[in-house]
């Protein structure tokens, strides 16, 4: 197993009106290559902050983050993101395919390959034929799919998602969960996802990182030893699934 993302003694403080706000305290964790890792914890604990640190959007106050062995000082190559707020991360003035093309410009694919890449990734997420639509012409679930298609089109090594399914309906949510598992298998992507849904975390993950406290620390790392491929019906009815979920729930609530 190789380590894809290494978080080493990371602390994060924000300057505020009433002194410094200490959000993350000495976080250390390694994400294995091709793993699916979920970060869970109570609202406001610092999940998004940790995610922003490992995308390189901002530097930690202290500590280091390495991606593929390199210390990062900005968003690393091969990173793709899917954020909760799909209405704010796609550009309303560009069609879906132009939104995707924008992020592909760096890869210098050539016209034909670019077309092919865009169409195949739209097909992958079940959006074939919607490339010419504007994001606001699509439903919320479809916009989130488009955002995932954009991420996949770049053929990322690392996929980072912040509560990506929080604002879609239950059926769409199950579909999208299975979709990200499938692309993880197809492309061998290392995935880090923040979620507040513990069932979702257990269903998708190889490992779950539980953040807790103020400032937040890694309270537990739960290995989800349910074999892949998983299925919404069978996996969620697995007695071990219920055990793990209860355990993670207790951790998040600070009961154990």
């Amino acid at each position: 197993m190789t380590i894809e993302i290494s978080i080493r003694n990371v602390c994060m403080e924000f300057p505020g009106a009433d002194g410094v706000k200490h959000v993350l305290d000495n976080i250390s964790y390694d994400v294995q290559e091709h793993h699916f890792v979920s970060i869970v914890g109570p609202s406001g604990v610092g999940k998004t902050t940790l995610l922003r640190l490992l995308t390189g959007l901002m530097p930690p106050t202290s500590g280091e983050i390495h991606v593929s062995g390199q210390r990062i000082s900005g968003p690393p190559k091969g990173l793709a993101v899917v954020l909760q707020d799909y209405t704010r991360s796609l550009m309303p003035w560009l069609t879906v395919e132009k939104n995707i093309a924008l992020t592909l410009r760096k890869q210098k694919l050539g016209r034909a390959n670019m077309r092919e890449r865009i169409e195949s990734s739209l097909e992958e997420v079940g959006l074939a034929g919607t490339g010419k639509s504007y994001p606001w012409q699509l439903s919320g679930g479809m916009q989130q799919r488009a955002s995932i298609a954009r991420a996949l089109a770049t053929r990322p090594d690392i996929l980072v998602m912040d509560e990506p399914f929080a604002s879609v309906d239950a059926q769409t949510r199950f579909d999208l969960e299975d979709l990200v598992l499938k692309v993880r298998d197809d492309f061998g992507i290392t995935t880090v996802m923040v979620t507040h849904d513990i069932d979702e975390a257990v269903y998708l993950s190889d490992e779950i990182v539980v953040l807790h406290g103020k400032p937040a620390q890694v309270r537990d790392v739960v290995t989800v030893d349910i074999p892949f491929p998983r299925s919404q019906m069978a996996t969620r009815n697995n007695p071990h699934f219920a055990e793990l979920r209860t355990h993670v729930y207790a951790m998040v609530r600070g009961l154990e």
Partner: peptide, 17 residues
């Protein structure tokens, strides 16, 4: 929207773009 800018930064889009 800062979310839009951050998304672009994550995909390593330069300042001019």
């Amino acid at each position: 929207d800062p979310v839009l800018l951050e998304t672009m930064r994550c995909y390593r889009q330069g300042v001019l773009r």
